[in-house]
Design a protein around this nucleic acid. Structure first.
Lengths: 207, 207
DNA sequence: CAGGTAAACGGAACATATTCCGTTTAGTCG
DNA sequence: CGACTAAACGGAATATGTTCCGTTTACCTG
């Protein structure tokens, strides 16, 4: 469901100038309207005007609230994405802490592929054209880099993390899944082989 | 320079209904005008109308000739791209045939990174929104897959080829180069480590 | 409650990719 | 040369993302 998350307090939870009541109401209205339309027609057949009209607000309000189309798409994914992030931080192994790094890397791919499988179209739109400084991308990158430092210490962990994330990019996923029509299982297996190979190569050079 | 390449005969070089003279003339005009504008302002500040006006044609002609904005961008890259492809097929090693697969993989990354470095903005535009069936992508994928079958036989070569290409996608390149401000040398080194690791892992599991 | 102000609103205006379609023309054939 | 036709043309019309700005309003303060 749509939750009215105003200013996420984060670290600087000082004097966040509380969101006005009408703004909060419109945020929920917009998200509900957008979710309904996307559900019904798919994001590719929903325009910003459609959303504004369905929500009973002006287009200006949409943009004030969400910045742009990508921001709105991102907000629609917020819940799913947050849940996945929570599992990475504090969920049960192997996705969460407690399993060996190699196993967690494999689990990350599995989980992320699930996310892609359910929301690839939305994710394509949510990715900012220019590098997405905001959004969970950098969180995932950090997570992977930490695991890689453990599983494949001979590699540039940050570089490899970004590279692996590129292989999970929404547009790449659509190309393989819909363009090439590869089954999901192939992508799962491929990801597993790939991260295993990176780990194996470290055992090799370390031995 | 702009070359007037009409219908590329390819395999079905049968009765290509020769391009009309006015069409050929306009093709060249458009490409020259577009190249000039892109050179001067960058693709991001050149609209289709700008190009049409500079070339002295209607916008309809632009679309008739190149399909859409991505098609025009792709046509502007054609020469560079073709040259790189030629080197892969018939150039001197290690980019061309004759060197060990691992070395050719490394050389591919170096060469492709050069291409990205020079034309990332154009390449971002040239990539079709939906999977790019046309364009050199599938050529590169095949090339990499062949090398991978040799260098890392335990991996799914086609999957890994696509995955490696994803790490060379224009938007990913811009994120690392401009967003994260990583130096080109880091990307070169990272690519090298990555493909070496895939090869090393095969030596490991094969031993 | 009255007044003040910063925030929010809405929708018209703008920019730009893309499509449509009536008009023009290159190339062909008699 | 004089039709004839398929291809090409051009630019107006359309669709849609985004910005702008004059108006409205929630909230605070006295």
């Amino acid at each position: 469901m749509i939750r009215a998350v105003p200013e996420l307090p984060l670290v600087i939870a000082g004097q966040a100038p509380r969101e006005r009541a009408d703004a909060a109401r419109n945020r929920v209205r917009i998200l509900e309207a957008a979710a309904g339309l996307v559900e019904a027609r798919g994001i590719d057949h929903v325009s910003m005007c459609d959303v504004a009209q369905a929500a009973g607000v002006g287009t200006g309000t949409l943009y004030r609230r969400f910045g742009d189309r990508a921001g709105l798409a991102y907000a629609l994914l917020d819940e799913q994405s947050r849940e996945f992030q929570d599992q990475l931080i504090a969920g049960p192994p192997p996705l969460g802490p407690g399993a060996p790094a190699a196993a967690r890397l494999r689990a990350f791919g599995d989980g992320y592929l699930d996310l892609l499988e359910r929301h690839a179209d939305l994710l394509v739109v949510a990715v900012r054209a220019g590098g997405d400084a905001r959004g969970p991308h950098s969180f995932y990158a950090t997570h992977l880099a930490i695991l890689l430092r453990d599983a494949a210490p001979q590699l540039d962990a940050d570089f490899t993390a970004q590279a692996l994330l590129a292989t999970l990019s929404p547009s790449h996923h659509l190309r393989t899944r819909r363009g090439l029509e590869w089954p999901l299982e192939r992508l799962r297996a491929g990801w597993g082989e790939l991260v295993d190979a990176l780990g194996a190569s470290s055992s090799f050079s370390a031995s």
